[in-house]
Design a protein around this nucleic acid. Structure first.
Lengths: 241, 241
DNA sequence: CTTGACTCTCACGGTACGTTATAGTTTATA
DNA sequence: TATAAACTATAACGTACCGTGAGAGTCAAG
């Protein structure tokens, strides 16, 4: 499905989908030769997850952390979201009652205390927020995410950018000029925020295919990207010696 | 009631109340000698109105237009809001059903079409939005608001600023030096966006007390401001001849 | 008369997109 | 088969609604 189809189906804007792609929240599984985004059924299910979280007031950054965490449990998430939505419904009902009372009040039929006038508004009083915080709170992240989180926003941005760029190259041979140029950028970037010898760089590339937490995270940007990067990084490292 | 009391009562932040004051959406009826905001019961009811609109997704700018419109009918607003909240409840229920189906679906118990996966999300499908648009749409504004709307954002901003400044002076004698300086600023500002002779300026001041739509709109910034301005403008105009 | 809770006004920062602008691509129609 | 209409892309700036200090003044309690 192309971008507008998706947008119309779920009732959001094309821009929103672009935005979610930009920030790495929802990257379409495929693109046409001319660069059009093509969303798979799996993409749609991820989008549904995102929208449930969004409805519950989670910031996009948090949603990204949660659903891309290797230990993310979809079933469990759905259960908690269910509880939270029911709670939201309760608050909405309270608010409706408040509004109904206010109508009577404004006709002079009943009296209302100041407190009563605002029942149902207290947005932060969801008892399941606690459960959500325990599950998805700031501490519940794995090592990989720790690293990402410790990066500055600029670095995060750059990080995404490079991955997306590399994803467009992933079908080229790993030793092609363009691929190697992309990998070089990646190497230079990594050495701005850390310290990687060519060997370490090569080793990192190995992890991309050996550790499935990495594989999954990287292949979000394009299927087979991790393998491509592993190969290209190995070649690049060898040429640096 | 002072600002934190209100914030705690309704479950919003102090900053939010400051913001609403800044943009002229909810200006406290009174201030203490030291400049502390003091909210009246009427302020609280306006705030309640604001929050109902906000819950329904109205932008603050729109809310401001609506509730400060001289022809604003509180009763009617409450009725429409009631319908819209019930509709929102319906959507929420749909969404909960969708979530429940998704739980079964993710367990492989049932099948789900792509369309079904997003039922309840289509935020813009509120049948009462139409009614709201007719009531409070962009065309349904009176003369006074037409003028305000035709101003640039910068001018709007400046407009508010001057009114708020004048409001702090309103208990001084209209012929005092400070009052006259404030009014001068007002005169100069008006002549940047239009063309006002001293006579026209004086006439405008008269309207502030004679036309209750003006009176109401101006006194939002402080009780008695319209009368004060009328007097001060008259004096200023006479001194210009 | 000091401490702590509260208040004020700047003023910069941040999220989640909206909104052009410009240009390439695909599909429908003449 | 040309050409318009509809859709797509990136880029870059704009906007709404506050959050978050900083720095300074105010007020009730001990």
């Amino acid at each position: 499905m192309k971008v507008k189809e998706v947008a119309d189906l779920v009732g959001i804007s094309v821009r929103t989908l672009h935005h979610y792609d930009e920030i790495g929240l929802l990257i379409p599984d495929d693109t046409t030769g001319s660069g059009y985004r093509v969303y798979s059924d799996e993409n749609l299910e991820t989008l549904q997850q995102i929208l449930f979280f969004r409805e519950l007031g989670f910031p996009l950054k948090k949603i990204k952390e949660i659903i891309h965490n290797p230990s993310f449990d979809r079933q469990e998430a759905l259960e908690i979201q269910h509880k939270m939505l029911l709670e939201k419904k309760n608050r909405l009902n309270k608010m409706i009652r408040t509004l109904e009372k206010t109508i009577q009040y404004s006709k002079g039929e009943i009296k209302m205390s100041n407190k009563e006038k605002f029942e149902g508004f207290d947005f932060s009083q969801n008892p399941y927020e606690q459960e959500a915080r325990e599950k998805w709170g700031d501490k519940a992240v794995d090592e990989a995410n720790e690293k990402v989180k410790s990066m500055s926003d600029f670095e995060q941005q750059k990080f995404n950018e490079i991955y997306r760029k590399l994803a467009t190259l992933r079908h080229l041979p790993a030793d092609s000029k363009e691929a190697q140029e992309g990998i070089k950028e990646w190497y230079l970037f990594l050495n701005k925020i850390g310290n990687y010898s060519p060997e370490a760089f090569k080793g990192l590339g190995q992890m991309y295919v050996n550790d499935e937490r990495f594989t999954k995270n990287i292949d979000r940007f394009g299927e087979g990207l991790s393998k491509f990067m592993c190969e290209a990084m190995s070649i690049y490292a060898d040429n640096q010696k």
